[in-house]
Amino acid sequence: MIEAIPDLVHHYNHWVSIFLMVCGLYIVVARGNMVKKLVGLTVFQTAVFLLYISAGKILGGTPPIIAEGYEHYANPLPHVLILTAIVVGVATLAVGLGLVVRINEAFGTIEEEEIFERGEQE
């Protein structure tokens, strides 16, 4: 137990990020409602963002804006990648929601199982 404490401190960010990722995965796999699935996808995405940003942090550092009197800056590369990923994520989310609206208009439901049933009847 004593040996596990440094592990807990060092990997707490990673573990929370993995927990969020598993939550997102569970929602996507288990739930049939499509809006809920998209929320789960967002949670999954955000978990990945958290993982990247944690990797870029240096303890005792500052944000990567060059100024006098600071030596350690956080790594800017993950920030840039995640910046683009967030905006791309919301763009894909918009397309997904558009598809959900069209599915709802065509089938009158956004539950996966009801759509499958209707498909089998025809």
Partner: peptide, 11 residues
């Protein structure tokens, strides 16, 4: 908190 103000603003 993790020193990424740009990303925080976007999110």
């Amino acid at each position: 908190v993790l020193d990424a103000p740009d990303v925080a603003m976007t999110e």
